[in-house]
């Protein structure tokens, strides 16, 4: 297998346009999955040479632009982001380990694939994500870590990341570069819920790379709350990205996104609607949390995530309301 370096994503001879080629940035997901024989790219295209142009951290008065090859650790440590986008800083800081955050890029992070044990074990034939139409071993297997929102009868694999919840909550846009040039789309459209095609995970076409993320506005009143089995270096059982605009005690705008519980980065819009124009109290937090999980479906081992997720949302809202900015 060949490893090639990519000098420009817009080149006509971009080797990534072959569907069997895979881009390599930090490598923290790809190398793992290749060792497990889950991913078998025919070619690896090293895109780190693009880092010079694609790793800028650019805060502005009307928003934030983040290069896709910026390292998680650098973004999490950036003073402007900690001040004006704590939900982004914390979602990055609470992910993975320090070593991984030093290697992993933002673009690679949002593309991280599910941790479903059955997806990652090729000795299981039945995985609709790996082998379309083969069934789902997780549905009635050990599914404590699996999703309760956005599932289908084909797949219940959880989207594992943290940062994506912050992006989707803040109405981020994703900038995508391919040989046809650069296009932009709402981040919320990047990931595809499994439906009947769990093998199709994103809207990226062959040859396309995420080049940047942009976040409109500033969200100093925002939090990322993550519940997990151990104190560090562990995926969320349930997480909430919450951003509020509160003026004189009234919530003018509210964003709620959920992690660890859904098949894709999950925006809880019905829950947000309940918050707008309201004054915060515990009763409201409870109604918002209930709304966020109204459509949740638990299975044998993961039903607890519904009650847990509601408490996490309510507590994150309370933290956001009371935080000093």
């Amino acid at each position: 297998m060949a490893v090639q370096a990519l000098s420009t994503a817009a080149a006509a001879n971009n080797p990534l346009t072959k569907a069997t080629a895979q881009p390599l940035a930090g490598g923290t997901t790809l190398i793992d999955l290749m060792k497990l024989d889950v991913m078998r790219p025919a070619a690896i295209v090293d895109i780190n040479s693009l880092a010079r142009g694609w790793s800028a951290i650019e805060p502005a008065s009307d928003g934030l632009r983040l290069g896709a090859l910026a390292k998680m650790s650098n973004v999490a440590a950036h003073a402007d982001i900690q001040r004006n986008y704590p939900v982004i800083a914390d979602s990055l800081r609470l992910a993975a380990s320090a070593q991984l955050r030093n290697m992993a890029t933002l673009g690679g992070n949002v593309m991280q694939r599910t941790r479903c044990s059955y997806f990652r074990d090729i000795s299981y034939e039945n995985c609709n994500k790996r082998n379309p139409g083969s069934g789902c071993a997780a549905m009635d297997g050990v599914n404590r870590m699996h999703a309760v929102l956005g599932t289908s009868d084909q797949c219940i694999a959880t989207y594992p990341g943290d940062f994506a919840q912050a992006l989707i909550a803040l109405d981020a846009a994703v900038e995508i570069t391919g040989k046809a040039g650069t296009r932009s789309m709402p981040f919320a459209q990047l990931h595809k819920a499994p439906g009947s095609t769990p093998d199709i995970e994103t809207a990226l076409q062959p040859g396309e790379l995420i080049s940047a993320f942009s976040v409109p506005g500033r969200w100093p009143r925002s939090v990322y709350l993550k519940a997990r089995d151990r104190q560090s270096y562990e995926f969320a059982l349930s997480s909430a990205a919450v951003a509020l605009d509160v003026q004189d005690g009234t919530i003018r705008d509210a964003r709620v996104a959920l992690g660890g519980v859904a098949t894709v980065p999950w925006r809880a819009r019905e829950a947000e609607a309940l918050l707008k124009g309201q004054k915060f109290d515990d009763g409201l937090a409870q109604r918002v949390a209930d709304a966020a999980f109204a459509d949740a479906k638990g299975r044998q081992h993961n039903s607890f995530k519904i009650a847990l997720g509601k408490r996490v949302v309510a507590h994150a809202l309370q933290q956001a309301v009371t935080m000093e900015i």
Binding site: R115, S117, Y118, V142, Q231, S232, Y233
Partner: peptide, 21 residues
């Protein structure tokens, strides 16, 4: 329980303490 196989057979899913614990 269906097939008597170990599921979390790796150090990402079989949790051991980290320093923060």
């Amino acid at each position: 329980q269906r097939n008597a196989r170990y599921v979390n057979d790796n150090l990402a899913d079989y949790l051991v303490p980290v320093n923060a614990d």
